[in-house]
Every structure is written in structure tokens, then in C-alpha cells.
Nucleic acid binder design. Structure first.
Lengths: 204, 204
DNA sequence: ATCATTTTTAACCATTTGGTTAAATTTTTC
DNA sequence: GAAAAATTTAACCAAATGGTTAAAAATGAT
């Protein structure tokens, strides 16, 4: 058996499926389009992944497992809070900017099938309690204001994710369809969001 | 001609279509489901709105025109900034909580057809410059920190919208599937988000 | 060279779905 | 009550789409 070739084709399929599914969603994606994107034909696509649903589930799982670990590694580092936040925003906003369809994809599909989402999360190593405890330590140390750590986490995520998800609206409304201006805006947010958050929570 | 009945049926269709489209999106929605939801049959549905696309466009336009004016009215009031922000968050988060599928719907569909979105915005009376000028006045008056007013607006929207869009994920990850706990969390955000923002921007 | 595996080709099937049609029925209007 | 409009019924159509199949061709391993 040719494992190199097999892996190669499977990988090509997974990459193509990821591209198409993330952009079009489960309902909007077409198996033919995925096959085209992978440079193969539909028969071979079904030969590797029997059904659209199986393929989609594989992608959904893959995407999630790519995102969470990096996020957790950052939290567990021993950097001071300011730098931890800066590093997180830097890499996370960067990731989103390179994958602008990712937020909407996840938001849409988590609504379509919350049970499947739940099963992935339980199995994936996402530990929100760890993040909460980290925040709480900083509060007890008098470094940041006391607040619901869940609020704080959601605020950080919302400030990072929303402007990427709203890209088309923003580009039209605020930047007169100038994509460069939009990209520069997002680029700047790596620092302005950090300042915005720290101004709010830091105790001086 | 029976205008009362006509209006009534048309309204029933529009409401049904809004419900189904917002929950399932353009791709996921089925004309039969919309007809069922409206309590009529498919033939009559096509009799009022010839195609799915026409119906969808009507809904998309309707939804947008329902959201923006309220938002603008709040901005133009003469309240001091703190109260203006409080009132906005109160009514806006409330609106979103009652329509939890709205954020994902808009985010998804703005990606599917940005041109149509653009045409709606141009015709609808959304004037972001007015909001920006309001922020800039407060900055010049030394009331709030100097920052990009576009950043500030996006921050406010992101903090309001994201936790609603991420409802299924949050309910599972942070509240162990307890929907009441999630709702209480959102309810609280009407004040915690206000504090979070004011702490960041207000000059004391 | 041979055998197994992978890939292509291309036709095909069943289902779903948006949309139509035409006749019958009900409701409104006058 | 008659004409007009609204609504239902039910069958139908065409296109798109997920999925299958079987045979041929290409590729790789030994």
C-alpha cells in the first residue's frame, strides 16, 4: 500500500474541504466544489470520505483542535499579564486575519448542531476554568479590578473576533470598500485592543 | 380587493420567512418550511413572492431597517455619554437576547452577498460619521481618552453582539448547559459591559 | 512482470427542492 | 347573487445534488 500517496490525497481532500466548508458552511458547500478544489473527482472524494456529513464532521473537529491548544498554551505561560494578553492578541488576531471566514463558520455551525459541538469540546482539551483561575489570581493580587472572569474572557474574545466576522460590513461602511484600510485597521487592533482592555482592568 | 386579508397574509409570510431565514440562513431555509410556519401552502407563498431570492432579499432589508434606526436615535439624543451608553446597551442587548439567531444570520449572509448588503446600507439611513463625531466631541472635551472612534464603536458592538452569537458554545462550555445561567449572565452584561467600557475610556 | 491499490471516467440513481400550472374551492366585494 | 380575488389542492417539471457503480487506466510494491 502506498501510504505516502494515500496521506497526500487525504490531506489534499481535508485542506480543500476546510477551505470550502469554512467559506460556504455545511449547507452552502458542494461536494463537487470540494473535489475540484482538491484537484480530484467526486468518486474519489466519496471513496475517502463516504458521506458529506462524515467529511464535515472531520473538518469541524480538525478546525477546533487547531484553535484551542494554541490558545491554552498562551494562558499557561509564566509571562506577566500584560505580555500574556499582548502575545495572545498578536497571534490570535493574526490567525483570524488569515482566516476571515473562520468566525462566521464556527458561529453558524455551532448553531446548526450544538450536540456535536459539545462532544468535541468535552474530548478536546479546552479548560476554561484554568483561564478563570489565572484571572482570579491577578484579582486577588490586586493587579486587576475584581470582575466576573467569564465576562473578562468573553470581552477579550469578542473584541478580537467580532471585527473579523463583520469584515464585509465594516469594509463597506467604514472604509468605503478599501480593503487595505480595513486590514490596517485590524493590524492596529493588536495594540489598541490591548490598551483598551488594560485601561479598563489594570489597577494603577 | 380585500386589502385587510392581503396585508394579513403578506405579513404572516414575512414573519414566517423572517423566523426561518434568520434561524437557518438562506441556504438552510426551505420554502416549504416557510409556508408551513406561515400556515399556508407553497403555491400561495410563490403567489406572493415569486422566488426564494426575492423573499430573502425582502427579509434581509426588513431586518436591517429594523435595527439601524433605533440605534441611531439613541446616538442623537442629548443624554450624557454614560447614560447614552447605558441606554444603548440596555435596549440593544435586550433586542439581541430576544433574537439570538440574529447576529449569526447577519454575519453569515453579509459574507454570502456583500454587494446586496452594500446597496441596503447606502439606501438605509445609517450614518456612522455621526457616531464618530459624537465620540470625537467627547474626546475634545476631555471627557474620554483619545482613540480611534471606529475602534470604540466596534468595541461596543463586539462586546454586545459576540456573547449572543456564541450562545451555544458558551452555554455548553461555561454554564454546563444551564440556559438560565446563561441568560442571567447576558442580563448582567447590560451593566458589566457598561462598566468595562467606561473604566477604559473615561478620564477621571 | 504481476498483483494490489489508487484514480479516473462516465454514466446513472434517488431525493430534494425551487418553482409552475390548472382546476376547484372559498372568501370578498359590489 | 354574480364577479373578482384569494386560497387550496395536487400533480407535475427541471435542475441540483449527494451518492453509487463498474469498468478502465494509472501507479506502486514485490
Amino acid at each position: 500500500m502506498n501510504e505516502i500517496k494515500k496521506d497526500n490525497t487525504e490531506e489534499k481532500i481535508l485542506n480543500a474541504a476546510q477551505t470550502v466548508f469554512i467559506e460556504k458552511g455545511m449547507d452552502g458547500a458542494r461536494m463537487q466544489e470540494i473535489a475540484d478544489e482538491a484537484g480530484i473527482n467526486k468518486a474519489l472524494l466519496h471513496y475517502y470520505f463516504r458521506t458529506k456529513e462524515k467529511l464535515f464532521n472531520a473538518i469541524f473537529k480538525k478546525v477546533f483542535s487547531q484553535i484551542f491548544p494554541n490558545l491554552m498554551a498562551m494562558v499557561q505561560s509564566e509571562l506577566p499579564l500584560e505580555e500574556k494578553l499582548g502575545a495572545f492578541l498578536e497571534t490570535y488576531i493574526d490567525l483570524l486575519q488569515r482566516n476571515p471566514f473562520l468566525p462566521t463558520f464556527i458561529l453558524k455551525e455551532m448553531n446548526r448542531n450544538p450536540e456535536f459541538l459539545a462532544s468535541i469540546i468535552k474530548n478536546g482539551g479546552a479548560k476554561p476554568e484554568e483561564i478563570f483561575r489565572m484571572f482570579e489570581k491577578e484579582m486577588e493580587a490586586g493587579k486587576i479590578r475584581k470582575m466576573d472572569p467569564c465576562d473578562l474572557l468573553i470581552n477579550i474574545l469578542g473584541l478580537s473576533i467580532f471585527p473579523i466576522a463583520a469584515k464585509p460590513l465594516m469594509t463597506i461602511m467604514f472604509f468605503d470598500n478599501d480593503k487595505n484600510a480595513y486590514n490596517k485597521f485590524i493590524e492596529n487592533r493588536k495594540t489598541t485592543v490591548k490598551e483598551f482592555i488594560l485601561n479598563s482592568i489594570l489597577i494603577k
